[in-house]
Every structure is written in C-alpha cells, then in structure tokens.
Amino acid sequence: MAEPGCLQRNDWVCGEYLTSRSELIVDATVQHVVLTVVSVGIGLLLALPLGVLAFRYRRARSWVLGTSTALYTIPSLAMFSLLLPVTGLTATTVVVGLVLYSLTILVRNVLAGLQAVPAEVVESATGTGYGRRSLLLRVQLPLALPALFAGVRIATVSTVALTTVGAILGNGGLGNLIYSGLRTQFQAEVLTATVLVVALAVLADLALLGVQRVVTPWQRSAR
C-alpha cells in the first residue's frame, strides 16, 4: 500500500488536486471571468447615461443616488434570492444582481468625475463654440475618465469577490468550488478556489490600471 496522498489526507495545499481536477478548475475560472466581465460591462453601459442624467438634472441626481445607495445596502444573498422568481436558477440571475451592484459604484464615479471638471474648462469650451453634446463627449467625459476608471476598478474587484455568492444559484464560477468544498469539507478545493478568486481580483485591478495609464496619459505623473 502506497502512502496516502495529499487528497486522502485532506491537506489545505495539494498538488494532486490541481492536476486531477484541472479541467474543473479551468471551467470555474472561465465562468468567473465571464460573469465578472459581462456584469461590469453591462453596469458600465447603464452607468454612463444614468451618470450624465444625474449630472444634468438635480431631481434625477437625488433619485439615482438614493436608489443606488438602497440597492447597495441589500445583502448579496438576499439580492440573488429576490431575483429568483424573475429569472430563476440561472446565470442571468447572478448577472442581474452583479450589474445592480456595479452600477451603484459606477454611477457615483461617473457623476463625481463630471462634477470635478473645472468650471473654467467648461466655460472656455463653450466659448470656443462647443455645443452641449460635443462638450460632453469631447471635454467633460474625457476629463472624467480617471474617476470613471477608479470606479471600474472598484466595481471589478468587488464583483470578482461577489460572484462567489452566485454559487447559491449554481452559477458562482469559483464560488461553486468553494460551495462544494464546504459540503464535503474538502480543504484543498476551498483554499485553491479562494486563492484563485483573490488572484483574479488583483490581476483584473492591475490590468485595468494598465489600460487607465494608456488611456489617460496626462495622469501619468500623478501616479
């Protein structure tokens, strides 16, 4: 009889787990990335018009900020469960919940970015003949990019972490591994998946930081 391997001993760190379950781990990681990218992507598409709306109209602003604060307060497990009757036990339910959370962060940052554009800049742009539309697209939004990027980074990192709760709906990417490891007390599975989630969050943050540097070269000196 050979010595029991790390899987039999239920070690926290186990190379055998990685090799024997590699397909499962890759699939879970891919699902995790897809869920995150789709959620933050849709969140961004919705946050831009909402942020502009909140910036232009005072009434829209209090409504948008109030709703987003309330939404963000709702715990993730409750959010996914409340969406259950609408979209069922599907990845869509997870995405909708994650979109709502990322939207909350993103709208605030779009608004903050637009509000931080100096009044002199807006005035001189208007003075040189920019219309309302081109002022927004060519002056205000580009200058709001750093704040927008800060929002995207925060939203992405928290979405990576929140996706794990999607495991309750069977669609949590690496969270699925954590959930199944919980039921079987499989230590290597839980630790590996956790480390991968944190690594994904850090990688995504660094990648976005890289993109931000390319897109906003004037910010480079200011870190």
Binding site: L182, L191, T194, D205
Partner: peptide
C-alpha cells in the same frame, strides 16, 4: 480596505468553518 474588497466574504467564512 482594498484587501477587504478583493477577498470574498463567502470564502473566508468557509475557510474558517472547515478550518
């Protein structure tokens, strides 16, 4: 704060419980 955001609460709960 940044670390707290990146680490999933669900994972920490599970790690502590089966640990």
């Amino acid at each position: 704060t940044n670390i707290g955001r990146a680490v999933p609460t669900f994972a920490v709960l599970v790690l502590l419980a089966i640990g």
